[in-house]
């Protein structure tokens, strides 16, 4: 039981850390990583949710299925994010590592 709660708390802390990093760091890669850490945190909580007290039968399979699905989603999204980050770095003159993202709303042109 305690282990279970610990896992859950751990997952929440991971989520919170990721959240903080996502908001605080300006580097694109860090942001992507932050998101990954957040998802890892969520998965941890989810896995902990599968816990059944001894004697209450087998481990709940549904969270596992969800975690698996989640991981797949996470991987593909991360891939897309990375590609986009690369594109941003290629096409924009901004120095991503230093200045972070700058989108100028006023001058941004559509098309």
């Amino acid at each position: 039981m305690i282990t279970n709660t610990l896992y859950s708390l751990c997952g929440l802390v991971l989520f919170a850390m990721g959240l903080f990093a996502l908001f605080a760091c300006s580097h694109l890669l860090r942001k992507i990583l932050a998101v990954n850490i957040m998802s890892a945190g969520v998965f941890l909580v989810l896995v902990a949710a599968a816990y059944r007290p001894l004697g209450a039968g087998e481990v709940d399979p549904v969270p596992h299925a969800m975690v698996l699905t989640g991981i797949v989603v996470s991987v593909s999204v991360t891939a897309l994010a990375l590609i986009l980050a690369c594109r941003v770095q290629e096409t924009s003159n901004l120095s991503i590592s230093r200045n972070g993202l700058k989108v100028n709303d006023e001058e941004g042109s559509g098309g």
Partner: peptide, 14 residues
């Protein structure tokens, strides 16, 4: 509007 677009501000409001 610019300030509201900063990540930190978004995080705080979130």
């Amino acid at each position: 509007e610019k300030i509201m677009g900063r990540w930190t501000v978004v995080g705080l409001s979130y």
